[in-house]
Design a protein around this nucleic acid. Sequence first.
DNA 1: ATGCCTAATGCAATTAGA
Length: 258
Amino acid sequence: MRIATWNINGIKARLEILVTWLAQEKPDIVCLQEIKTVDEGFPRAEIEALGYNIETHGQKSWNGVAILAKGRDPVETHRGLPGDPDDVQSRYIEAAIDGVLIGGLYLPNGNPRPGPKFDYKLRWFDRLIDHAAGLLASGLPVMLAGDFNVMPTALDVYKPERWTEDALFAPEVRAAFARLLAQGWTDALRTIHPGETIYTFFDYFRNAYARNAGLRIDHLLLSAPLAARLVDAQVDAHVRGWEKTSDHAPTWVELRDG
DNA sequence: ATGCCTAATGCAATTAGA
């Protein structure tokens, strides 16, 4: 079973790209971030035509997440991250699919730092860590997949010295990611590619993709029962080279049957 | 330190991204 995450950067502007990739790669489950539309604006028909069932948690203009499941019916378990009823941003969706619990997330960017957006990022991260603890305690096969907006280590940044004050690489943000991992999650891409320079995001600026000036900020975290089934994890980096594509590349794991 | 590029809104220029 292949499970992917992709920050699509606008589903309406990216529908053709998404359909092309889905038809080529045929992933079983896809977590999308930054759909940038309300639920009613999501182009369901074109994606359902490829055999996918869809759960969305949309928002006008910004943010918005979705889960696609090919030939399976996702059973939604959460819309929105628990822990703050006043949080109106659509950044979390969770569903049970084929006995696996999938949390799709879009963690706040947090820039500029310091500031209210950075504070919101840290609070959101704390809520995620609280929720993740409960997921692990369930003992179920669980995955957290999405755009975490964190480079966990210097290996995950093309020029780490330029990013030390940035909200994506700040010490307190890396520490939060480390706290999350320490609960018992396996970073699938880093586990399959130890010590390797491997990026999931390339800025539109300055021809970043061609220069391999990227960041690793999209992550797939596996609970122990899923980590035992990990076969492969890769980035479809070539998709970043397509015309009119997202600045993030699709990132995925292959799991053997449970 | 800032712009470089791109999307959404809405039709110009701003907000946001990372």
